[in-house]
Design a protein around this nucleic acid. Sequence first.
DNA 1: TTAACTGCAAAGAGTTTGCAATATC
DNA 2: GATATTGCAAACTCTTTGCAGTTAA
Lengths: 189, 189
Amino acid sequence: MESFNKATTKENTSRTEQLIEMYLKRLKQCGFRMTNQRRIIIEILLKNLGRHLNVKELLNIAQKEDPTIGIATIYRTVDLLTGLGLLNMINLEEGFSRFEVPDEQMHFHFYCKSCGKVVHLPDEEDKTKTVMQWAQKEGFKLLPQTFELAGICPECINEGVVEEDFCHIKRPICEKRCKKHRRRWRHEN
Amino acid sequence: MESFNKATTKENTSRTEQLIEMYLKRLKQCGFRMTNQRRIIIEILLKNLGRHLNVKELLNIAQKEDPTIGIATIYRTVDLLTGLGLLNMINLEEGFSRFEVPDEQMHFHFYCKSCGKVVHLPDEEDKTKTVMQWAQKEGFKLLPQTFELAGICPECINEGVVEEDFCHIKRPICEKRCKKHRRRWRHEN
DNA sequence: TTAACTGCAAAGAGTTTGCAATATC
DNA sequence: GATATTGCAAACTCTTTGCAGTTAA
């Protein structure tokens, strides 16, 4: 319970509570039942707005509140919320999905391949307009989604990480190194 | 052999051959061995520039030339080529990866969630510049990559497909429908 | 009360890997 | 001849599903 309050400062608490209420109400409106498991998962998601949690992280946190909760419920709940447009699925080519509460229409994430951090780019409304224009010009209709830009963050650049570290392998020996790197971001347990 | 020549018009053949040579040479330069399997896979990739093949498709086509080729070899080869920067991995949230030969630095794909088609947006150089500026402004260094914009294509819009068809589910009964939809793009066999 | 929901365990799908056999340099 | 590479099968990871028991409305 402590652990997922970190991202919530005092002044944000009431806003968070409002959002939670809104989410629960929306579920009910749509004809779904309000179960304890769903409440727990929604609370975790809304109290960790800055983070991009994956299923195992959600499970670990949720089990602190209800140790009997199963991973299938996590999958079914994020599926449900995603289907209702209350959650965005994010893919960083890690071999699994992450999830984020959408607070505007679209998001632009920068994902550091070196340290794994994910940050939001600013001016997401402008960027959204730009991307929508790209699509409209060809007659396409964009669906709400997030965009992931992969690269190296300023901190890692400072530490001397360079593009070549990311698998522009030159010798057989490097093949193993690169594979190991690819797996670095896998779930831990 | 016939099947993967479709995308190659006559005037492109010599260019394709050149590219194949270039790829094989690059492998050798980097200290990797030139095996028959690798040659077959590289030829398939370069003779299907317009398509975005996945591992099973690669395997099926490759086995027409050498029925003994295994799926592990496909995985190891696309890993190798991706690591060398000779191939781009593409993720369309289908549950598996697709691959594309990079002909410039970055790509902008539009992926129709209704019919599954993938097309390239025009003016990729301009769009690349735009996206690089977004990153540079925050001090990030972008790595070469592709961007996937998901939506509905003009043809499907004409056929009456609308945004709501994509899982803004309203009732419990819809949950199953949406799940079925999500699985629609899985591998066939 | 009844239908939606859950947990469990098993199944599925994609991907990786250990190893003996093979092919390349 | 040394060793990088392959095919196979098994293992692994993430995700979905069938079902019996539980719970919300």
